[in-house]
Write a protein that binds this DNA or RNA. Structure first.
Lengths: 342, 342
DNA sequence: ATGAAAGCGCTAACAC
DNA sequence: GTGTTAGCGCTTTCAT
């Protein structure tokens, strides 16, 4: 009792393979009665299509392009690694992945890249871009050209993208806030927030969520205005000591953006590594070490490997006009303490 | 410039398709010189095998069986749902999944099931079983019969299984301990531990990790001996009130096993819902609600959907003699607070 | 509107 | 040892 194939449908419904195929793929040129006959046969014998064979015959392969800002943060480094590491595996599955870096903070360059991709007609693009009117419009043009678009990490809801691969950053900020508040306990104190700038939208959202939760649930804490570390370890190392001595009573630090190396270096240099409660984002190698030695108390992160694989699966599903498994594509807000480090 | 195929290899190396195939699949009956010629051609033209076409031609399909204890916990309910929900998708990929329930606490039944599977010659088995000598030996026989075996949630390292899909439960217990300790703060207090029994091994490991971390990092806390709730909501609701009044100064509860409904009910009935710090396992629907209304402070869990998909991917990779993507198959110890609920 | 036949990239009898 | 050939399940010309 082997699995039914198109031949079985043809036999049972008394038509040819070509007609079966037309019905299966909803192509025109078949009489309504014939369609019905074929469909009856399909349900009768319980046919399920062999997607692999279909793709083989179709000779269809998908080209997906990741477009990322050319910065050296741990997060982007990890993302690039996941993309290139996964390539051989994807190759076996009729999809070819490309990775293009664009200069950061340069909307023109981003627009030019996206327009080139639209002209080339790639099947899908996964893009991490700041939210500017120009990029928003370029993404719209890309979609209009028939390319599937997912946004990565930082969403552009107005861009008409098909899907967003990332987390709710307000919730991520709230999570950081709760950990900070509960770890610090009921005594009053001040908290320094170290913001970046690169991905304006997600950082702003995290800050918002953090502030809200502190305000309502931990009123004994006072959150100081953001220190602009520009996601740069050296800048952070330069400005943090002054801030720390300017504000007595600082008991916690919330590091919203990249540049954790600078923060860690400073805390060690000032001998504060274990005294402050530090909550940071992104599980880069230095952040891991900081968690292990107690410098950091918690790290909030999103699984970069999951994001990359999810982006590819989603692009492919959209390109093949298939549904996605929603639960599988939901990126979690991961909390890591020293004890549950992967 | 299209992707090279076996025909190209044959042309470049001047042999036939059959010989190319023999070399590609390391089958005997080819002279060393010929092998070398073919391999040179392969690297020269940069050939990569089309796995989908190979499987199609091979007419190979895989049968994998999930063997689970027939109990009604939220965890197992969720796992069954994930298995059956995923079936249609798997079907498209030349793998058929079966789910068999065995009576819990009945090593004989488990052994009989596994031996039947071995006789049938299924390609892979994912099993969640208590660690008894009988099951261990049955799994060994299964493996010896050529079936790939992964253990689910609760490992049987001595069974010679190919892979374990689950988390380090000692680390999960440590994670619970750290959350408990830090949320409770420096004041002294007592902590009740509510253990189950079903999966003896994982519960024991969690308890071990929890105790260790409290002992070394939070000596101000006193952990009471385990209350055996047998993973049953009613039993828990029956024994917890007495324990609570017998031990004044209880400030926290660690719920290791299933039966969270009974715990929640009791806390609400006694008006303790918001006063105690409660850390539990498994994000079942009642646990979610408890997190949302503040009855639970943290829930530690493993992503059941991820586990099921990982088990299938791993079984398939082993059956096809392919490597697994280690990072993709690593199950995380997830921490959920109210703020980062998915 | 429908059908016959030739592939897609790979494998597996069966020859030689 | 090596080559020929006929598929796997589906799609796609090109006829009719």
């Amino acid at each position: 009792m082997t699995r039914p194939t198109v031949h079985d449908i043809a036999r049972v419904s008394g038509v040819s393979l070509a007609t079966v195929d037309r019905v299966l793929n909803a192509r025109p040129g078949v009489r309504a009665v014939t369609i019905a006959r074929v469909q009856d046969a399909i349900t009768e014998i319980g046919y399920v299509r062999d997607a692999a064979a279909a793709n083989l015959a179709r000779q269809r392969s998908f080209t997906f392009v990741f477009v990322l800002p050319d910065v050296a943060s741990g997060f982007l480094r990890a993302m690039r690694a996941e993309i290139t590491d996964g390539m051989p595996h994807q190759n076996l599955d009729r999809v070819v992945i490309r990775l293009v870096d664009v200069p950061p903070h340069d909307p023109q360059a981003m627009v030019a890249t996206l327009d080139a991709l639209a002209a080339e007609g790639v099947d899908g693009v996964a893009v991490m871009a700041p939210e500017t009117p120009q990029t928003r419009d370029a993404l719209r043009r890309l979609r209009a050209a028939g390319t599937r678009v997912v946004t990565l990490a930082s969403d552009l809801p107005a861009s008409d993208r098909d899907h967003f691969v990332g987390v709710n950053n307000v919730a991520a900020g709230r999570t950081a806030g709760v950990l900070m508040g509960r770890f610090l306990g009921p005594q009053p104190g001040r908290v320094i927030v170290l913001a970046g700038s690169m991905l304006a939208r997600d950082h702003a959202e995290r800050r918002l969520g953090f502030d809200r939760v502190i305000q309502t649930d931990f009123p004994q804490l006072h959150v100081l205005p953001s220190l602009e570390g520009r996601d740069n370890a050296d800048i952070i190392a330069a400005i943090l000591p002054a801030a720390l001595s300017a504000h007595p009573g600082v008991r916690g630090i919330y590091a919203i953006g990249a540049g954790n190396r600078g923060l860690i270096r400073t805390l060690h240099a000032m001998g504060l590594a274990r005294d402050l409660v530090v909550v940071a984002h992104e599980l880069s190698p230095p952040a891991r070490l900081a968690l292990e030695d107690g410098t950091f108390d918690a790290v909030i992160t999103q699984d970069v490997g999951h994001m990359v694989r999810s982006a590819i699966r989603v692009l492919r599903a959209y390109a093949e006009d298939r549904a996605i498994i929603v639960a599988q594509e939901r990126i979690r807000i991961d909390i890591f303490l020293r004890e549950n480090l992967p």
